[in-house]
Amino acid sequence: MADLTLTQAEAHRATRLDVLLLLIAVVGLIAAPFFFYPIFLMKMLCFALFACAFNLLLGFTGLLSFGHAAFFGGAAYFTAHAVKEWGWTPEAGILLGLVGAGGMGLVMGFLAIRRQGIYFAMITLALAQMFFFFCLQAPFTKGEDGIQGVPRGYLFGLIDLNQPLNIYYFVLAVFLIGVFAIWRIVNSPFGMILKSIRENENRAISLGYSVQKYKLAAFVMSAALSGLAGALKALVFQFATLTDVSWQMSGEVILMTLLGGIGTMVGPIVGAGLVVTLQNYLATSPLPVTIVTGTIFMICVLIFRRGIVGEIQALLRRLS
């Protein structure tokens, strides 16, 4: 038992280093809008949250969804519509996006978790494509145009989100809350069961776990948090369009997560930051964006299979 308490102390030391790094990162993010273009930073934060939510499913439950754009883009539509057409406050609109995406996750997850592996991925893709065509045809989404000119409004009726710094700090706060929620889910008794399902599903069943319920719960949580990211994006860019519900978006979030490192907390954030930065940088250069990101993706898969953060962690473990 003495040995056990010792290792707990070690665990606390590791946490202290983590807390230090976390503080540096948060201070950096608070200072960032004074050095970089806020819209660019907010785009990064939205995608980072999206990738973290996706990683909750892929990295910590072992389920590869190819339909997460439906939650991201769906929530963007819900929020944009509620804020623009119904005059909801931004926080209520975001809440609607979160709940709406969670509801979609419940339906899609309920159908998809009955199958495993590639079949699971294909069902999520098929359902997301159905939702894409729904968005293309439904009157409230305005078809090819999308919902344009979404007002950012006043947060709690008080804070003017049209001020760049106000909306930036609002987005940063929601991002931090979202990432904290994911961290808590992963490092909880529930997260432990998710990991055991990822590691050996039959064994988890033989220990009496109804793995379908756990998978569905994880799917809904991942969908709702992806929705939170999409809802934020609708407010930041003030529009919701078909791009956000297209299958390319589902692919992009997979790319970000793999690039950063599946099953690590920070990996998806780094991956999202890298992809968004590249897209931004290459948009003004003569190089074609998709070919460059595709090449980087292939190099990563071939050389750093654990992703950037995954490889760094493995290196640190080997050194210590």
């Binding site: 889910i185 909880s188 008794p189 529930f190």
Partner: peptide, 9 residues
């Protein structure tokens, strides 16, 4: 202790 996603490890 199965579904408690809000509790710490």
């Amino acid at each position: 202790l199965g579904y408690q996603f809000w509790l710490s490890l």
